[in-house]
Computed example of a mutant assay.
Amino acid sequence: MHRRPRLTWLLAAAVALAAVTAGTVWWLTRPLEVTAPVGAADPACAELAAKLPASVQGQPRVATSSDSPAVAAWGDPAVIWRCGVRPPGPTTDECIEVNGVDWVRHPLKDGQSFTTFGRDPAVQVLVPNAYAPEPLVLPPFSDVVAAIAQGEHRCR
């Protein structure tokens, strides 16, 4: 008689552990919540998306909540690519050149936002502080964005 309660307790513990593990796995594989930008339907965004790297800073690509090719992410914390954002106008934010592509850098609470300058559609790359120095994440993105012609606006 004493074995049955122990067996019941062990079975209950095993079921609870399985439920927690399944919940954890589900949480880890849940797509990253990312919104497609206003200009995501621009055909150039789909062309650029086909050239995006499989990994960034050694981090694999991760699933996002958006089915738009204008959105992509890599790693945890995620580096996020968004094509079709509004092109930046005149700004006092820092403007840097990486592999021939101009980027406007805007500091965020937990990282940096980089938006192409003088290209349409504009591309935004969000880089968490975990990848500091953040501009070192941009070269593979600059190589992709270089396919968009540089307009008259440039970093000076």
Rank of each mutant, 00 (worst) to 15 (best):
H106W: 00
S68Y: 07
V127N: 13
Q124C: 02
P90V: 13
I96S: 02
P69H: 14
V62S: 07
A78N: 10
V98E: 11
E94C: 00
S65N: 02
V127W: 09
P77R: 13
Q124A: 14
S55V: 01
P135C: 11
P87K: 04
V104M: 02
T116N: 02
V127A: 11
Q124K: 14
R61L: 11
L52I: 09
T64I: 09
D76K: 14
R82Y: 07
I96Y: 08
P128W: 07
R82D: 03
I96V: 15
G89P: 05
F114C: 13
R61Q: 15
H106N: 00
D67F: 07
A54E: 15
P107A: 00
V123T: 14
H106E: 07
P87E: 12
V101E: 11
I80M: 01
T91W: 00
V123P: 04
D102E: 01
R61E: 15
D120G: 01
C83T: 13
T64K: 12
L108E: 15
R86V: 10
S113N: 08
A70N: 04
G75P: 08
G58P: 09
G75T: 13
P53C: 09
Q112W: 14
S55K: 04
I96R: 13
P133R: 09
R82G: 00
E134I: 07
R105E: 09
N129I: 03
F117A: 03
A122L: 10
D120A: 00
D102W: 12
P107Q: 05
D76A: 12
Y131I: 10
Q112H: 14
E97K: 05
E94N: 08
D67G: 14
P107T: 06
V98A: 10
V98M: 10
G111Y: 11
V85T: 15
Q57F: 01
C83E: 11
A132V: 11
G100A: 04
Q59F: 06
T116K: 02
V104N: 01
A54P: 06
S55P: 00
P107S: 00
P60W: 13
S68M: 02
I80G: 02
Q59L: 05
D93P: 00
G75L: 12
D76H: 15
D76L: 10
G84W: 05
D102G: 04
A130V: 13
A73C: 10
R61A: 15
V127K: 09
P128C: 06
P133H: 02
R105C: 00
V125D: 04
W74S: 01
R61C: 05
V123H: 03
C83F: 08
W103V: 06
T64P: 08
V125S: 03
V56N: 06
G75H: 12
G84N: 05
P53Q: 12
D67A: 12
P135Q: 13
R61N: 09
R86Q: 11
N99T: 11
D102F: 09
W103I: 08
Q57W: 04
P77F: 14
A73D: 10
T115Y: 04
P128I: 06
V125Y: 08
A72T: 15
F114E: 03
D67V: 13
E97L: 01
T116V: 03
P121N: 04
R82F: 01
V71W: 05
G84L: 04
Q59G: 03
W103E: 01
A63V: 15
